[in-house]
């Protein structure tokens, strides 16, 4: 794949994941506020999320979008503010994405699996 094509597709991936986050983040925040202000304890929250396919899919997609969006953005920040370029940066970007996905999905599993 040409470098120009790879950069264009990364740009698209970041914009597409941003579009998902634009919907997902408000739902997440409203849910948190509603749960806390509604007086739900951690146990009561887990009672509602464990075994729920809907919450599993919602947060799995959330983690995927973050794992795509954040590393590409950090890659740009690293290039522009640190002047870091080259294979090391690409590996670090990939590692950041994989780490976010693994830790995030692990947390989702803890939320939805009994």
């Amino acid at each position: 794949m040409s470098r120009a094509r790879a950069e264009a597709l990364l740009w698209l991936a970041q914009r597409a994941s941003a579009a998902v986050l634009g919907v997902w983040v408000p739902i997440h925040l409203v849910t948190i506020v509603a749960a806390v202000r509604g007086g739900l304890s951690a146990t009561e929250i887990l009672e509602r999320t464990q075994g729920s396919a809907a919450w599993a899919v919602y947060y799995a997609v959330f983690v995927l979008a973050v794992s795509i969006h954040a590393p590409i953005g950090l890659r740009t920040v690293a290039r522009e503010t640190l002047g870091w370029r080259g294979p090391g940066l690409e590996l670090a970007t990939l590692a950041a994405g994989v780490a976010l996905a693994l830790f995030g999905w692990r947390a989702v599993a803890g939320l939805v699996m009994a």
């Binding site: 040409s2 470098r3 120009a4 094509r5 790879a6 950069e7 264009a8 990364l10 740009w11 740009t76 290039r79």
Partner: peptide, 13 residues
Amino acid sequence: RLAAVAGDAGCHA
């Protein structure tokens, strides 16, 4: 031209 202007040094930056 589109290949020349795409990417880190081009429009996507």
